[in-house]
Design a protein around this nucleic acid. Structure first.
Length: 771
DNA sequence: TTCTTCACGCTTTTT
DNA sequence: GCGTGAAGAA
């Protein structure tokens, strides 16, 4: 690698190139972070403190000062999106030079780049395929089946998680002890891991974890390769350092040995990926790991109002393992964070939509609103409500384009045509569409392939020469093999987009969906069309397949429409919105019970960080909701307000139990009339008799109500409103459990409601306002 | 080989 | 409460 040496020599420090106009407008801390070019730097960047700006400016500054050439800077992010944004923003400062930043990318894409150059050092060929989760699971299933393990008791998914965890921790099969593997199939875990790795090698394939792990192994075993990269990378920049796992940490440490110029940027309070191996500890330990490191704290927040920041800071202060920051803003005032208790998930969606409509009517855009949920099942109620009211919305994240079955099938066809040895792809399409090739035939083929030590597609040819497989399966296989040969032939002369179209048509794959009566079949066909279009952006089929194996979304971002954003809290990281709705702040939902069961205190702190991330997305207004009753997996459950609600500092919060009533269209009856709610009226609450854990919020329990006419005593829920305010005789009202009803008798505080349709759901509990 | 029925388990998710 | 996935039935 003499070339690289030469290039490095040529690039010895040059005098600064020119003035630095890009530094203008940065605050002193930001400048410090940009200009500290010697030695390790930790930039602790709180939410909304201009983290990306610092990172991009620093990169531009390094180039402008002549400290390094573009190809001598390693800049790592976690997501493709972050890498893309970085590239764009650096480009806007330094122009075309940005094209030469070839080491700006995700941990995985950079690792893939390195690994393709040295694949043979870990027993792979440079053209190795990168498996997706689907392929990985299919392979693991085979491995488990081959070891005669009860697949129901020990699932492939379970093993996949285990292996992922090991890989996240940088452990190869040789490093995993039997003890570690004990949690799977009575100690067989470690062995299965080894078998799986062997199979991968035989297939010339990698899973995501391997990209890092193999690179790591190369760095550790081949000092010469490592020092080649040491010479190359003069500057290292890492985004979202708090999300690095052990493997990534080791990877970085090894590379950083070559240059002290490692700069990591992150926020310990926003570490929310512990469940997939991220170690907050990495950032907490940085000063110890890299002695003499300069620590720069960015604490000036440019995003949120005083109240939002105050609420978020107060909440996160309850965490113990953190470095600690004091965010401040010049933006005083603004609205307090609203906290509302509602009846159930539907009431929550109704109330939130009302809030959004209200916001929209004040000349604000829908696109400025977002609803951030803890778990994706919470989205359903909101989607239903958005559709009912005709509000424009989009779900961010959600099912990924390249993970859809039809897209994976199409890719499998392309992979099978491209390479005869891609067993997993071949296996996937062998009976899709149905060709009469069932499990038994596939079994026979696999045995044959293993015995002859050839790929599956090759085994098919051998078997067709015998009469081991007959009937429908035989004809099916013969056509498939013939088709693949023909496609392989025309692939030489045809652009890959057209090739894909031909393959999908001739294989009968498109026809399969066209004949499907399922309403979503049309959507699948549309996706296939989109796929063919997307392929056009790549010069070669190879290039396209490499791209999709490292990326989960199509690059097209549709931001132009004025839509409400609906997403999980995890998906919201890095985004901001003037108005943020935070539903489902209930114990067991948020913090998630399951998370607490698994990880105890550490998980609770991570959930709290998630709450912090949620609040700090808001620029102007944040509204938190919690319900009294929740339907989870079809079952009603009475729930308590989240402890996070109680942890919010009172000075920055305005709390009340929201108890509106609704007319037949399900719309709010009387605006602002937080009078007695229909729910309480009809269900005879017994005040304060329930088990009650949350300080401040008083819960009352209801009796089972499965009746047509319900009578009850109206109780005041909101202290400042008369009980029967706004309710009139004959008025049609809507009740979540009982459907539409009519007020029959209205006599002072007593009223009777007759429902047209009897409900049979158990009415559980409500809340009264915080005292 | 494909159709039918029952049991199970169910977060967050990038690469 | 619903979708998936594996085991029996046609």
């Amino acid at each position: 690698m003499a070339d690289i040496q030469k290039i490095s020599e040529m690039a010895r420090p040059k005098p600064p190139i020119g003035p630095a106009p890009y530094l203008q407008g940065l605050n002193p801390e930001q400048c410090e972070a940009v200009e500290a070019l010697d030695g390790p730097v930790l930039v602790l960047a709180g939410a909304g403190t201009g983290k990306t700006r610092v990172l991009t400016t620093r990169l531009a500054h390094i180039l402008n000062q002549g400290r390094a050439q573009p190809w001598e800077i390693l800049c790592v992010t976690f997501t493709n999106k972050a890498a893309r944004e970085m590239r764009n923003r650096v480009g806007s400062i330094i122009g075309d030079t940005v094209e030469r930043l070839q080491w700006l990318g995700t941990f995985h894409s950079i690792s893939a780049q390195i690994l393709r150059r040295h694949a043979e050092l870990v027993g792979l060929k440079s053209a190795f395929t990168i498996l997706d989760t689907d392929d990985q699971l299919r392979l693991l299933k085979q491995v488990i089946a081959a070891e005669n393990i009860d697949e129901k008791r020990w699932t492939a998914r379970h093993l996949a998680n285990l292996i992922d965890n090991w890989k996240n921790r940088g452990l190869g099969p040789d490093k995993v002890t039997e003890q570690d593997g004990w949690s799977f199939a009575n100690g067989k875990g470690a062995k299965l891991y080894g078998v799986y790795q062997e199979r991968l090698k035989a297939l010339n394939a990698c899973d995501f974890g391997d990209l890092l792990l193999h690179t790591l192994a190369i760095f550790l075993k081949h000092e010469d390769v490592l020092s080649e990269y040491h010479r190359r990378f003069r500057y290292l920049l890492v985004d979202e350092y708090q999300d690095t796992n052990v493997a990534q940490y080791l990877w970085l440490r090894l590379l950083a040995r070559g240059s002290a110029n490692l700069c990591v940027v992150g926020d310990d309070d926003q570490s929310i990926y512990g469940w997939r191996g991220a170690e907050v500890d990495n950032i907490l330990r940085f000063e110890k790991d890299f002695p003499g490191a300069k620590v720069v704290r960015l604490e000036r927040n440019y995003r949120s109002t005083e109240h939002i920041l105050g609420a978020a800071s107060g909440l996160i202060a309850a965490n113990t393992s953190r470095l600690g920051k004091t965010l401040w803003t010049g933006d005083s005032g603004g609205e307090k964070v609203q906290v509302r208790g509602v009846w159930d998930g539907e009431a929550e969606a109704r109330a939130a939509c009302e809030e959004i409509e209200n916001w929209h009517s004040k000349d604000n855009a829908y696109a400025d609103c977002s609803v951030l949920v803890r778990a994706s099942w919470q989205m359903r109620a909101f989607e239903e409500r958005f559709i009912a009211l005709g509000l424009p919305y989009r779900v961010v994240g959600g099912p990924r384009f390249f993970e859809r079955a039809e897209i994976r099938d199409a890719h499998a066809y392309l992979r099978a045509v491209r390479s005869n040895a891609d067993d997993l792809a071949f296996e996937r399409i062998i009976n899709v569409p149905k060709r009469g090739i069932g499990a038994t035939s596939v079994q026979k083929l696999q045995t044959a392939a293993r015995n002859m030590n050839v790929p599956l597609a090759e085994a098919v040819r051998h078997i067709l020469a015998t009469d081991e497989i007959g009937g429908k399966a035989r004809t099916g296989l013969r056509t498939l093999v013939g088709d693949i040969d023909r496609w392989r032939e025309i692939a030489k002369s045809l652009p890959h987009g057209e090739l894909a179209e031909i393959i999908l048509d001739e294989s009968g794959y498109t026809a399969m969906w066209r004949d499907d009566k399922n309403p979503q079949a049309q959507g699948r066909l549309d996706n296939l069309k989109e796929l063919i279009q997307a392929m056009g952006a790549f010069d070669t089929l190879e290039g396209y397949l490499e791209h999709v194996s490292l990326v989960s979304e199509l690059d097209v971002e549709r931001r132009d429409d004025d839509q409400i954003s609906l997403m999980t809290l995890h998906a919201a990281k890095g985004l901001e919105f003037p108005m943020v709705i935070l539903p489902g702040w209930e114990e067991s939902v948020f913090p998630s019970q399951r998370s607490l069961d698994e990880g105890g205190k550490a998980s609770l702190e991570e959930e709290r960080r998630l709450a912090y991330v949620g609040l700090t997305r808001a620029r102007q207004q944040a509204i938190i909701y919690f319900a009294a009753n929740r339907q989870i997996y079809g079952r009603w459950q009475a729930v308590l307000p989240s402890r996070f609600v109680d942890e919010l500092p009172p000075d920055h919060v305005e709390a009340r139990a929201d108890t509106g009533y609704y007319n037949q269209a399900g719309q709010h009856g009387q605006s602002g009339a937080a009078g007695n709610s229909v729910e309480e009226t009809v269900s005879q609450f017994d005040d304060g008799r329930s088990t009650y854990a949350s300080p401040g919020w008083k819960r009352f329990q209801a009796k089972k109500a499965a009746v047509k006419t319900i009578e009850g005593t109206a109780r005041r829920v909101s202290a400042n409103k008369e009980s029967s305010n706004g309710l009139k005789h004959g008025m049609r009202i809507f009740h979540q459990k009982f459907g539409y009803g009519r007020i029959e008798i209205l006599d002072g505080d007593k009223l009777t409601v007759a429902f047209e349709k009897a409900g049979n759901k158990k009415v559980m509990a409500g809340f009264v306002e915080k005292a």
